[in-house]
Nucleic acid binder design. Structure first.
Length: 137
DNA sequence: ATTCTGACA
DNA sequence: TGTCAGGA
């Protein structure tokens, strides 16, 4: 007699460091679908696994909608090559976006370097000028 | 004591 | 997502 292994909402909030509000929010987004015991939510192992993937997806910068699509892949019988293709497209898009951001950041950093160098050069020039215009005592 | 739904200075 | 309300 397997004991129905369920998690209460607080079990998951403590384990994953999220708030109950977040779990209910994800439920509204249909990312999680806990069953009910009366009013209380009962999260099954499946929900726990999904939550893991959701949080991982967030860390990767995916939107909840994109994460939802990915999660659906795990449900469907598999073989939905069409959806897998969509997922691969998303991954590609994400990669490109991140690479573009990295490029922009590197450019900005390079600009800052040159600006700083010029600023220091001017500062040096001013100090030299002041030194020459104000004789030592 | 806890969770739930609904709402938004 | 936070947070507060008001009920179960």
């Amino acid at each position: 007699m397997a004991k129905e292994s369920f998690y209460l909402i607080t079990d998951l909030t403590k384990e994953f460091g999220v708030t109950t509000r977040t779990l209910r929010f994800y439920e509204d987004r249909d990312l999680l679908t806990p069953v009910r015991r009366g009013r209380r939510r009962l999260y099954r192992p499946r929900d726990r696994t999904r939550l893991r993937l959701i949080l991982r997806g967030k860390r990767l910068g995916l939107t909840l909608d994109e994460i939802a699509e990915i999660l659906d892949l795990f449900d469907r019988p598999s073989g939905e090559s069409q959806q897998i293709d969509r997922l691969l497209e998303r991954i590609d898009a994400r990669r490109e976006a991140l690479l573009a951001q990295r490029s922009d950041i590197e450019k900005a950093l390079a600009d800052l370097d040159t600006v700083e160098i010029r600023a220091r050069e001017r500062l040096g020039a001013i100090m030299v000028e002041e030194d020459t215009t104000q004789p030592a005592m």
